[in-house]
Design a protein around this nucleic acid. Structure first.
Lengths: 261, 261
DNA sequence: CAGTGGTCTAGACCACATG
DNA sequence: ATGTGGTCTAGACCACTGG
């Protein structure tokens, strides 16, 4: 593994030197940092820089591109905002997968379905009890001290995280949730095992914000990166709320489609 | 007018001095720029800094807060990203209205309705013909050289721009659009005058991006600020597409709600 | 411990908007 | 003509990550 990483870094190095070779345009019209940004952004999107691999350090990069470290940082900062790179203090700068734009159809009847060209997998981060949130208390009609179950999951496209969601369930509705989910790893399976055969997306709220520490870690983004937030809840056929969900996407990685049936 | 602006700037100055008076916390835990950012963000949200007014220059601000100009710029940069401030080269730094989060309900039957605590007004930026876009050619079934009409509008809350939209119409469907809209300033009126009495939102696509030059100017944002983009189209009762719309919101200013009837 | 990214300072030149 | 924000350089110290 370390073997391939080194190979990746080496191939990155050559690619970067090639990118830096071209002369800069007149800097009064196009700032140097923007030209560097453009070249790196293009390289990321073309996968000329290997997703998951590490870049040389900032001093080295500045040297390669023939600019001051601060100028280099300016370019790197924008690339992080767009989710093309992720810098980790003490560790280095890593190439993220370029943001393919996902198309998510929310048909208001079932859960979101996802159109993607790659392979989508799900990783369960944690499943644990907590004191019910205010949202949950209201939606499920719980008393102040009640417990709920929180499920944290990350969706990955070809191994790259693109969606982080936190779900909160009522133990009154799904008493065997923990064992059930642990065994099958599926929420719809939990539904079925508790007699819920039909459900629908009752409401979806979309807003924007900036990734907090947890969200940025899960999505391998630099903290404070802009994200799209999705709050939603599902109801069963009787109109009872059975699931609360709060999801988070890198800003440019998703396109949510709402259409009439 | 210049009178009140000066008064605003003076009151800003005193507020800023007050904000800078408090000692900074240990900077190894909380970076100085972040502490300055926090204080200014809070002041903007409380409207302690007057929306629309100008701040002192960066050198002066740095002096007030007792830091280097670059450190000050770091804080100011984040505030611009969040749409709390707007810097204009050569002109100064201006206070934007704090981003109240709007709740927009899209019920899939009529056009979006907007819940806001203030007064919403609409400003028409331009109405002109253009060569049909690819999107319009496909949606309206137009030939390659066909003309369409483009309408640019800005929505304001209490005078502050929060939404910028570009609509593209077919002249085949609305031949008298230009005169009609010029006279009444209403799209639904244009619909009615052309015999369209019932219509619905057929599809809404939500995504994220970064404001281009035009969008940032219309929304009084600093260029490259993150925004939420909304593409949608309306159809008449026969299912024929009659309107294409591309809208743009400052990232944290809107919450789009999609719910089942 | 060495190397990394994060922060901060100091000083300089430029293009632009405004009066 | 002046002052503005935008850019760039040079050098420094820190906290963190990793081997």
């Amino acid at each position: 593994m370390a073997r391939t990483r080194i190979a990746d870094e080496d191939s990155n190095y050559e690619e970067l030197v090639a990118l830096a070779r071209k002369a800069y345009l007149d800097k009064s019209e196009h700032p140097i940092w923007q030209q560097i940004y453009d070249r790196l952004a293009a390289a990321c999107r073309e996968r000329a820089l290997v997703p998951g691999s590490r870049l040389p350090g900032e001093y080295r990069l500045a040297e390669i591109f023939g600019v001051n470290r601060i100028t280099m940082r300016n370019a790197l900062g924008r690339l992080q905002e767009e989710g093309l790179l992720q810098a980790r203090k003490g560790a280095g700068i890593f190439v993220r997968a370029p943001a393919q734009r996902y198309v998510i159809k929310d048909n208001m009847r079932f859960s979101m379905s996802l159109d993607a060209s790659g392979t989508v997998t799900t990783r369960t981060v944690s499943l644990h009890r907590r004191k019910a949130s205010a949202w949950a208390r209201e939606a499920y009609g719980l008393a102040a001290g009640a417990e709920t179950v929180e499920l944290h999951r990350v969706r990955l496209l070809d191994g790259n995280p693109i969606y982080y969601a936190v779900k909160e369930f009522s133990l009154t509705i799904f008493p065997r949730l923990e064992a059930d989910y642990a065994e099958h790893g599926s929420v719809t399976r939990v539904y079925r095992d508790h007699g819920v055969t039909s459900f629908r997306r009752a409401e979806t709220r979309v807003s924007g914000g900036f990734a907090d520490a947890v969200q940025s870690e899960r999505l391998t983004l630099t903290p404070m990166t802009p994200v799209i937030l999705v709050d939603s809840h599902n109801t069963d056929e009787d109109g009872r709320t059975i699931e609360l969900n709060r999801g988070c996407w890198p800003l440019t990685s998703v396109e949510l489609v709402f259409s009439t049936p």
